[in-house]
Nucleic acid binder design. Structure first.
Lengths: 240, 240
DNA sequence: CGCCAGCTTGAATCTACTCAAATCTTGTGG
DNA sequence: CCACAAGATTTGAGTAGATTCAAGCTGGCG
């Protein structure tokens, strides 16, 4: 397999992916950039399957994804689970605006990750965090639409397009390709499908030459055409 | 039909439902209360099917639902639509934290409504709006879980329980009953079902004596038991 | 080498959808 | 106040998309 042909992004480009994403969504001054660099340098590792935040527990502060993949999860009493959204480098969690906030979802590390405390104090950072919140809300709406009104094939395509868009902001995707080191089981739990049906549908997409995800690597053969096919519109939350 | 036995709430109780909801979710001082009363008095009517906010357009300010029902909607290119969430008295829309915000969903009046400009300026109001935002986010996560992991019957039950919970805050529901003047078609678009299947499933719920929604009136025969049945946990976003 | 997790395949089943027609409601104009 | 039209809900029959359960396959790792 050509599995070593993973998207070839230098470790240095990857190291400040989180910074790159925040710079892409809001203007950051020297001070803000320096604070973020410092926070990212001091990021703490956490292992796969670790709960980074627990539903119903108090939120202690804003956290910034520096590397790896995580997800917001809701567990049902009978063992079913729903992944609410994926978190990638540059995304925040515990990014809340009111006093004494409780987590409304668990945050789970899907791979080994690095997490920073999101620095505060600067108006530019505050703006960036607010922008991140607005973008996150837009993604929640997209997730609702995916689950409510799209077919299995459309759901997968739409999700991969969203992730492509988001990872591009952080410099973690290009030419329709990105690393996607999750299991089908996990993605099925995000898309409201069974892993069996997800597997079958992925094969269909391969046969149709629409996209190919395997060996932890996604290839979108023609992102624009795929976006038209599922009627996807890129997320925009501001004019500036 | 006993359709004139609608939940018997005096017009005066209903008139400041929005105020009651905001008081229930955050402490409001005299000033904040007075500002809200004034805004509610000056609320503007809008007719059913009117777009109160249009996706992609700039948001001009926070709005407060004073009476009636509205919904956040996403339209798909091929005519399918997904209702993201319902808006009831006391709910806000255009409640955003960043500069130059664009609406990420359309807001549609599902009945005739009254809308107020949400007054600003007071820290207490600011807090209340932030709390409202957090609660709204929790409801979005619930909607995702409903669509992704619940069966048709569970989806309906869970939605009705959520609405019961929310309307109770505004004094618009009690004893498992509330007015619900929407069409099955509309609710089907919120639940990711067809109206035909929704209709059949409602009949099933009636036969099972679980709940009954007809003639614009919902009756939950035993809200607690129903909540246990679908594994629903009431929304909480703070300890205080 | 053999285990284990993840992925794939097959067959049977089920839930929800589609299309179409019938029935019930509601609002309106005569 | 009735008749009618338009909208909303219900019913039926056939179908499609997704699930379930079980077995087989593959690749990485101890």
């Amino acid at each position: 397999m050509a599995s070593r042909l993973v998207t070839n992004l230098a470790p240095s480009a990857s190291r400040f992916a989180a910074l790159q994403r925040l710079q892409a969504i809001a203007p950051l001054d020297e001070l803000a950039t320096a604070a973020l660099r410092k926070a990212i340098d001091e990021a703490a590792p956490a292992s796969i399957r670790r709960e980074l935040l627990s539903e119903g527990h108090e939120i202690t502060g804003k956290r910034l994804m520096v590397s790896g993949w995580a997800a917001r999860v809701r567990l049902l009493a009978d063992g079913r689970r729903q992944l609410i959204s994926f978190l990638v480098p540059g995304d925040l969690f515990g990014n809340c605006g009111h006093a004494k906030p409780l987590a409304v979802s668990t945050v789970l590390a899907l791979t080994n990750v690095a997490i920073a405390d999101a620095p505060g104090g600067s108006p530019a950072l505050h703006q960036a965090y607010e922008m991140s919140r607005a973008i996150e809300e837009a993604h929640l709406l997209s997730q609702i639409t995916r689950l409510g009104r799209l077919s299995a094939l459309e759901r997968i395509a739409d999700l991969l397009l969203e992730l492509y868009e988001r990872l591009s902001l952080a410099g973690l995707a290009e030419n329709g390709r990105f690393a996607f080191p999750l299991t089908q089981e996990t993605v099925a739990d995000a898309l409201g499908l069974t892993s069996v049906h997800l597997s079958r549908t992925l094969q269909l997409a391969r046969r149709n030459n629409e996209f190919d995800w395997r060996d932890g690597q996604v290839v979108l053969h023609d992102p624009e055409a795929l976006a038209r096919m599922v009627g996807r519109i890129p997320v925009r939350v501001t004019n500036r």
